[in-house]
Computed example of a mutant assay.
Amino acid sequence: MKIIVTGSLGNISKPLTEELLSKGHEVTVISSNAERTSDIETLGAKAAIGTMENVDFLTETFRGADVVYAMEAINHGVFFNHEIDFIQANIQIAKNYKEAIEKSGVKNIIHLSSIGAHMEKGNGILAFHYEVEKILNELPEDVSIKFMRPVGFYYNMYAFIPTIQSQNAIIQNYGGDEKEPWVSPLDIASVIAEEIEKPFNGREIRYIASEEISPNEIAKTLGEAIGKPDLKWLEIPDEDLLNNLTNAGMNPKTAKGFVEMNAARKGGILYDDYFKNRPVLGRIKVKDFAKDFAKAYQNS
């Protein structure tokens, strides 16, 4: 099949591209960075250099494809840009995707959505996923869409490193012994590759998770990996976390969204629909990720 992969050679898109190529598919990888061309071609894929803001570029790249894997790939550096509204920027990309899909005539879409996309409000920064799914669902009925809803990514835990170094603790506005789902990008890539080869039938949703584990268990696992077996996960009030994030320079609106998202984890509100549609867990566990975490910690 001819498959378009967005997200350049990111944490999901690179292993996805490699798996699709190994199965004999023709893959085109979209990247905004021309310097990635060589790396993409070395894998055996075709590079399409352009941006998600350019509808004409997207339309021409999508044209003739059997499947498009679409994700909103905004660099996390914008979290600290006070001029960019992160949620609205992602919503605009979704509108661009919708227009390009209609104009190109592609009929099979796999979209990287997220846990929390079932919630119209109360999900903080994840609110854009609800809006994006709504926009894509406006496409004609003959366009089949598989919405992939991964849970929290393991690599988001790298953000714990500064407070571990400075205060010898993981500090968030949620915590405790209640298990919640986390996921490896490698497991996400495997699921997407699997779904690409399965029939497309209208609109479908699939959650993706690797392990269900509590904050306290995460602290123990990461602590052991970095030589701090007594590492603790400390829960602080929402207001304190908001102050910490804004003092670090994060866009105030984005910081508020992060705090609200984390608050929705407490009591499982964020995971209501996930547990109603619980997936088979992937192969990569936090103990596996902890090896990479330890390397990042030692090199930071």
Results as ranks from 00 to 15, higher is better:
T6P: 07
S8A: 13
I12S: 00
P15M: 02
S22V: 00
S22H: 02
I30V: 05
R36Q: 15
R36V: 09
N54M: 04
L58R: 03
E72P: 00
I84Y: 10
D85F: 01
A89N: 06
I91T: 12
Q92I: 12
A94V: 05
K103R: 14
N108C: 09
I110H: 08
I110G: 08
K121L: 13
N123R: 02
G124L: 01
D142G: 11
V143T: 06
F147A: 13
M148V: 14
R149K: 15
P150A: 12
F153W: 13
N156V: 09
N156T: 13
F160K: 08
I161N: 06
Q165K: 15
Q167A: 14
G176L: 08
E178F: 15
K179D: 11
E180W: 14
P181Y: 06
I188S: 06
S190W: 00
G202R: 04
E204D: 07
Y207T: 05
S210T: 03
E212T: 13
I218S: 11
L222S: 05
E224W: 08
D230H: 15
P237V: 03
L241W: 07
T246C: 07
N247A: 15
A248I: 07
A255K: 05
N262R: 02
A263E: 07
R265A: 11
K266R: 13
G267A: 08
L270F: 06
D272F: 12
Y274L: 12
Y274D: 04
Y274S: 10
N277W: 01
R283S: 13
V286W: 08
V286M: 15
F293I: 06
S300W: 07
